[in-house]
Design a protein around this nucleic acid. Structure first.
Lengths: 200, 200
DNA sequence: AGCTCTCCGTACCGATCGGTACTGAAGTCG
DNA sequence: CGACTTCAGTACCGATCGGTACGGAGAGCT
């Protein structure tokens, strides 16, 4: 913590760590945490195991960093949606973002935060809980946003921001599952539209 | 196929195959297909690997049989819901059933058909596709049921049974993900209620 | 009894898992 | 240049993966 910038002594690394992390994220996204072997990961990253361990720690650390990158990249729509002026716009943008992110051509179908690890064996419990916390954090932010909307009169006073946040999150999660099963972008956008027809 | 009943020659098996399959189903439900090792499975089943292979084939066959059992057991609410007289009752029973099955005390949280395998490595693709087909089959049945409801005048003529079926399925899948993340039965039932507030 | 067939426990198979030690090359400094 | 440091590749680690060969034990039949 004393010196955040360390002088580049020695041979500099011969690969782009950002690019490598991006590739790793895609592999985790497609195959899940347990389903992605180090061979799969390093193969896609274009580096050897040694380089991966030196640069990222271990498999679990790599997944954490990949999840951070996912949050800042494909899942950045969440933060953008939360900043919109009305609760209805927030909900609509969140679901539209989930549909878009889960059906982006060239990217794996679905959501890393869901299919990265839903059920896991002994070794994958930590990551499973990490993802559960990650999803729950998104739901909590939405809850806070909807509570504010009630305070501001944007949502009617009898609206329950807790249940609404859980509802929107549930639909978004369901969209991810549907996308993983092959549903198309248009089909899922129709679902998102239906889900908001009853907005208070 | 010529003789469906084969005489019980030789030593009869010393364990209850139904009970063993039930235990295996629970392990798959809790840990997913790839996350459940043969050691986990046979340990919970109370038999050895040899007995398992003799009685069920291999791991993939065991999963198939466990999924069948899941469909006839915890997921039997689907067939019951489809037989209800009105589309609204069908949808409500389906979501309530998903909530109940995903939050049954003493059973793993969530739905085997979802968390059994959403994303998988090389070896788990077959099972992943099997589950995707399984989910899609449920959606198709719901689609048929809603189309019939439109024909019968139970649903308004402008209702789109395809989108409605996809919507209900999506919410049900989302409920499973939420349950896997620790959501309670009451919270999810509230979500199910909200999801049906706009029913046509 | 004696035969036959199956069950079930052990011990083992090659492959792969995540992770590491070691080596030689290659870049950056004095 | 020469010292230093980190790179990347190979070869390997013990553990575990799904799956099997084998052999003694036990139950049903004649």
């Amino acid at each position: 913590m004393s010196d955040v910038r360390k002088p580049p002594i020695g041979r500099p690394r011969g690969f782009d760590a950002d690019e490598a992390l991006q590739r790793a994220m895609v592999v985790f996204w497609e195959q899940g945490y347990e389903g992605a072997s180090l061979t799969d990961l390093t193969g896609a990253m274009g580096i050897t195991k040694t380089s991966m361990y030196a640069a990222f720690g271990n498999k679990e650390d790599l997944f954490r960093k990949a999840l951070d990158r996912y949050a800042d990249g494909p899942a950045a729509y969440v933060a953008r949606a939360l900043a919109l002026p009305t609760a209805r716009e927030v909900a609509a943008a969140l679901l539209a973002g989930a549909v878009a992110a889960s059906t982006t051509p060239g990217c794996p179908a679905g959501c890393l935060g869901v299919q990265g690890s839903l059920a896991a064996g002994e070794g994958g419990r930590t990551v499973r809980d990490l993802l559960a916390d990650w999803r729950d954090q998104g739901r909590t932010h939405l809850h806070d946003r909807f509570r504010r909307a009630v305070d501001e009169g944007d949502l009617p006073p009898d609206a329950d921001p807790r249940v609404l946040a859980r509802y929107v999150t549930t639909v978004a999660n369901g969209i991810a599952v549907q996308a993983a099963g092959g549903a198309s972008r248009d089909e899922l956008q129709e679902v998102a539209d239906v889900a908001l027809r009853n907005w208070p």
